[in-house]
Write a protein that binds this DNA or RNA. Structure first.
Lengths: 343, 343
DNA sequence: TTGAAAGCGGTACCAA
DNA sequence: TTGGTACCGCTTTCAA
């Protein structure tokens, strides 16, 4: 029923070894036969068998390298859980995982870590890295050398990555606006927006989605300020407190960054607990606690565990199936959570 | 590094064949050696290799049988998509799927379909069926005969199933209440609840979760009526219209059943579009359209595709790993969706 | 009751 | 550039 290499071998008159080489773009096959075999495989609907391939590759493991700026950043915990899960699941199919963690978004450090991963013989990569020209060039280079790259969570524009696994930031902002509009109908909304960095692509997209959706819904609203918490708790608390002092009429707060939420919570508690309608992003321990304490009304989450898991799974799939040049992006959901989700 | 049968064979002094038989509870091994081998496997941390197993079992497929009451019930479409996905994913690991669909919840029909599945040599089953004594007995029987059963979406109480894959209905109701409370603060809530059948375990749990959570939140609310739509559009429309006529002060509607939502929409449109805050359950085409048209404010969904996929995946896992008597339930999320999720 | 060996699908090495 | 073959981990058949 299912077509195997042996079938192709019989049908074409060459040996299984040759068929295998032809299908895997090995150079030591004549272009003639290679084309003929590929044609035949196409016609007969040949699909490689993962079990067979995995077994044969047991000693020659398929190593995927991972780079995460996860040191001191609890958001990445769930991404790492997802990676671990995929690693265990695909171990007996010949997959091996090397995870390298760095702190922050320094381009040089990311580049040198990438070089190390390549050094260690990784056959594919999954990266959460910076949208920077040198990084882009490095990724394109890897891709040209047949090392596919998947981007996690953070896009690098216009590079030859296999695909992107992450959230739709703009939509996340839209949904925050929709929740606000539904919860505070017929009220004048005085909104304070807190981001990590205005220049951060994801945060900026959220803010755009948020304000544009409020406009589309013809809400009676005003964004009184957009402040930067620099993705850390201290600064977030300071700028939030200052903003709340400057604008005593604020009644809604949209926190478009996952990091620094603890500082936001502190600022709200210091000011007034019941006064604000608060929407935050991304589920980490602190956020959960603030939701449970009724400080935050809603969190819009982005399935980090799924991101880690799917990145690895997609690479495994890609490496064990016939090579296509590009895969579909995997966009995770914008999951709305409130107190009852955490109890 | 990883322990194989060959390792166990060397370490124990018996042949790989014997080791394999010992580990798979074949009767043709002396109890002595069997125990010794199992002990050794435990100590050395042996984990069977799916690739090897799958390959060797190529001709001797691992068939899983599925029963769904999915005929004329669009809710099951996504469950079927999930099943299809898992089927494709695990095909080359030796998995084969037989799906039998029936219409409705007739016990005799379910029983005879189960018998057919067994007849066809299924080695494991995934069922969405009725919580009934005869069904329970049948499942226990299968389980005793080493055919593991996973229940999808609908629980059968106190039976020897491997595990349950489905939603937390009570929590779903809680979340509906929380959304209502947040969206209509400081208002007197006059709530109409529409269920499929009051006797349906899932619907009843949702209603309980809903009302109990409103109480816990000390909302100013009254459930003016709970009506039964019999899971079909015509009846749902009729009873909803009648209820709205009887209770002109209703301002919120909680639809605790996924089926019949089209009838609910019709009733709301016929009465007044802007008057009600409406929460529905389960995402099907009609629900999406009603949300897009602002008839329904929120839908609380239950990841049906994940349910289908996971049921198959868990059975595959169970059949290719050392047998444990029980697996953890897989509880899917209560996913809140609003208009922006569908655009 | 046990051992030996074939074979599942694929890859890689060595010869030709 | 090709064919032949050993081998990956496991199950199952056939002999002993």
């Amino acid at each position: 029923m299912t077509v195997t290499l042996k079938d192709l071998s019989k049908a074409s008159g060459v040996s299984v070894g040759t068929v295998s080489r032809a299908l895997n773009d090995k150079s030591e096959v004549s272009e003639d036969t290679a084309k003929r075999i590929r044609q035949l495989a196409q016609e007969l609907g040949y699909v490689p068998n993962r079990a067979g391939r995995a077994l044969s590759a047991q000693k020659n493991l398929n190593t995927v390298g991972i780079l995460l700026p996860s040191i001191n950043s609890p958001f990445f915990d769930d991404i790492k859980h997802g990676i671990r899960e995929a690693e265990l699941e695909f171990k007996d199919l010949g997959l091996d995982v090397i995870l390298r963690e760095v702190e922050g978004w320094d381009v040089d450090e990311h580049l040198s870590t990438l070089a190390q991963l390549k050094e260690q013989g990784c056959k594919s990569l999954a990266l959460c890295t910076v949208d920077d020209p040198r990084i882009r060039a490095y990724i394109n280079d890897l891709s040209d050398n047949n090392i596919p790259v998947i981007l996690i969570n953070n896009m690098v524009q216009d590079c030859k990555s296999l695909c992107f696994v992450g959230p739709d930031y703009y939509r996340s902002g839209e949904i925050a606006a929709a929740l606000l509009a539904k919860s505070r109908q017929h009220q004048t909304l005085k909104v304070l927006i807190v981001v990590g960095l205005k220049s951060h692509h994801g945060h900026a997209a959220r803010v755009r989605g948020f304000t544009e959706e409020l406009k589309r819904r013809q809400c009676d609203f005003e964004v009184v300020d957009v402040v930067e918490g620099m993705d850390n708790d201290i600064t977030t608390q300071q700028v939030t407190m200052e903003a709340l002092r400057r604008h005593r009429d604020v009644n809604c707060i949209y926190m478009a960054s996952g990091s620094g939420v603890s500082g936001l919570g502190a600022a709200v508690i210091a000011d007034s607990i019941d006064k604000f309608f608060v929407i935050a992003c991304d589920e980490i321990y602190t956020t959960r606690e603030l939701v449970k304490s009724n400080i935050i009304d809603f969190v819009i989450c982005q399935e980090p565990k799924v991101q880690g898991y799917q990145a690895i799974k997609l690479l495994h799939e890609y490496m064990s199936k016939p090579r296509t040049s590009k895969m579909d992006d995997y966009i995770v959901g914008n999951i709305i959570k409130l107190k009852n989700h955490f109890e």
